[in-house]
Each structure stands twice: as structure tokens, then as C-alpha cells.
């Protein structure tokens, strides 16, 4: 549980970095704007959680799952996030599964994908993510 009110803020350094990377180089973001975006992000988490929770409750489940979050995005009119989220989740799951299994799966996927999909550079990106995630894995587990 959150003990201090600051616990409900997201780390400013990370928010600032995401904003910077999203905008063209050299754009000046005022301190007030940064703080406002950070607060907006916290409110977004709460709003998404509450929407997702409604879906879980409707289905009489006590645990929020991935489908609930996706349904929440649609309800909140952030459909544009759905596809990138699906891709990120796949990559994340692969990373969690471990290196050997992931690379084996990847080979299979690649063969399949090459046949029925013309997904340009996506595979290269995924490959990268898998490799990167292996380092981060221990970190994630501690965090949970």
C-alpha cells in the first residue's frame, strides 16, 4: 500500500525522458507542463485500472487480466494503443519464457511469418527485444 502521497507519482526522470523522446529535438518543455503530464499519467493509470476492473467484475473475476486492460483501452478511446500493446505483450512473454525456449519459438515463428505475413522489419525488432530482455529478467522477478 502507498504510505506516502509521493508513492502515487511516477518517477519524474522517466516521464521527462519519455516526453523528450516523443517530441522533435530541441523542443522546450516547461516544468509546469512536465508536472502536468506526470499527474495526467497517474490519473491515466487509475482510470484504466477502474475501467479494467469493471470488465473483470462483469465477468465475476477477482483478478485483472490482459484482456481487461485491452478492453479498457477501447472503452477509453485509446484504440490506437491496442496493437502496439499486443506486440509489446508478446515480446514480454517471450522474454519471460527464457532464452532457449524463446529462440526456438522465434525460429518457428519466423518460418511461419515469412509465409503468411509480410511484416517488414518487425522481426528484427522482436529479436532485439528478446535479447535485451534476458538481462532484465532477474530484475523483473525481484520486482514482483
Amino acid at each position: 500500500m502507498a504510505e506516502r502521497p509521493e508513492d502515487l507519482n511516477l518517477p519524474n526522470a522517466v516521464i521527462t525522458r519519455i516526453i523528450k523522446e516523443a517530441l522533435p529535438e530541441g523542443v522546450n518543455v516547461s516544468k509546469e507542463a512536465r508536472r502536468a503530464i506526470s499527474q495526467a499519467a497517474s490519473v491515466f493509470v487509475l482510470y484504466a485500472t477502474s475501467c479494467a476492473n469493471n470488465f473483470a467484475m462483469k465477468a465475476k473475476r477477482k483478478t485483472l487480466n490482459a484482456g481487461d486492460v485491452m478492453a479498457a483501452m477501447e472503452e477509453m478511446e485509446f484504440e490506437r494503443f491496442i496493437q502496439p500493446l499486443q506486440e509489446a505483450l508478446e515480446a514480454y512473454k517471450k522474454g519471460q519464457r527464457g532464452k532457449k525456449e524463446a529462440s526456438e519459438q522465434k525460429r518457428k515463428d519466423r518460418e511461419k511469418k515469412a509465409d503468411d505475413e509480410n511484416d517488414r522489419s518487425k522481426e528484427d525488432n522482436e529479436e532485439h527485444m528478446d535479447e535485451e530482455q534476458d538481462d532484465g529478467e532477474a530484475e523483473e522477478e525481484v520486482e514482483n
Binding site: 511516477l10 516523443a22 495526467a40 491515466f44 483501452m73 490506437r80 494503443f81 502496439p84 500493446l85 505483450l89
Partner: peptide, 13 residues
């Protein structure tokens, strides 16, 4: 994971 990622997309957007 999805909520975290969605929040990042939200900040960008």
C-alpha cells in the same frame, strides 16, 4: 505489464 506500457504510450501521445 500492459498498464505500465499503456501509460508510456499515453505520455508519448
Amino acid at each position: 505489464f500492459l498498464t505500465t506500457k499503456a501509460t508510456e504510450l499515453f505520455v508519448q501521445h
